[in-house]
Design a protein around this nucleic acid. Sequence first.
DNA 1: ACCATAATTAGTAATTTTTACTAATTAGTT
DNA 2: AACTAATTAGTAAAAATTACTAATTATGGT
Lengths: 141, 141
Amino acid sequence: MEKAIAILKKNNYKVTKQRTDLIEYLSKFTVQYVSINDIASYMRSLYPGMSNNTIYRNLKEFSEIGLVEYQEKDKTLVKYQCDFEHRHHHHFVCKNCGKVTELRACPIEFFTDQLPGYTVEGHAIEVYGLCADCTKKLNSK
Amino acid sequence: MEKAIAILKKNNYKVTKQRTDLIEYLSKFTVQYVSINDIASYMRSLYPGMSNNTIYRNLKEFSEIGLVEYQEKDKTLVKYQCDFEHRHHHHFVCKNCGKVTELRACPIEFFTDQLPGYTVEGHAIEVYGLCADCTKKLNSK
DNA sequence: ACCATAATTAGTAATTTTTACTAATTAGTT
DNA sequence: AACTAATTAGTAAAAATTACTAATTATGGT
């Protein structure tokens, strides 16, 4: 939490009550995505008149400074960034329970080798299916 | 084109005028994405009262049978499937000119090795940046 | 501690994107 | 040619996102 605040400051964002509470709520979701809708509901339970503007803008800004990330396949879902050090990695998302498993390392060189002269600015990788628990459960039926 | 029609039939979809014209239009976009909006405009120039229903449903069905694919990062963009044989591959998308470059092969084993017991059902990979042409152009300025 | 000010937010609305539903039409089959 | 199930048009609503302005607030300097 203090770390997140520090990141806000480092990026010249003001530390408002709204942002603090938003971060606190988001920090529960390191292993699973929340919908922007749920976020809005929760935030409006604290700040009844909170505008979409505020919610969308903050999520967007948070994602830019690495506090938050959007799910690749469904941009209405968001999760807290597991590690602020920006160690680059990707995710496996379980379609059944929604659990997120971090994947180690990243095979981007696999692709950049095929792109001579190109400027590779970024990439999106997401693997999905059933986690080990759900695989076991669903197979034993 | 005949190939696409064959795929429609194989999947028990009826071959309607609307679908034929939609496929014909989409087939221009093998190397670049079109927005669903542009598709709708074009289709409505042929069928003035064509409903969203028809457009969205057909695109969704086409993507299910592999005629079409959505852009990972922006689901309002769509392109014609380059190869119907379903040879699995991924894309590089140029942010400047929109050109799509096919990437050979796929490093999914890189990840599945890290996921023992998991059921990996699919994955999304997209690399973006500037293509060689745009890199050259923008650097020479 | 106060002030100035630039950033942030609330409040309101509009726009964009997507989905829903039903009656009418149509492609494919017998 | 008739039957039937799929498809479409037409209409509407829901969901998601963006826009704009005035009011409020956090922060840095005095």
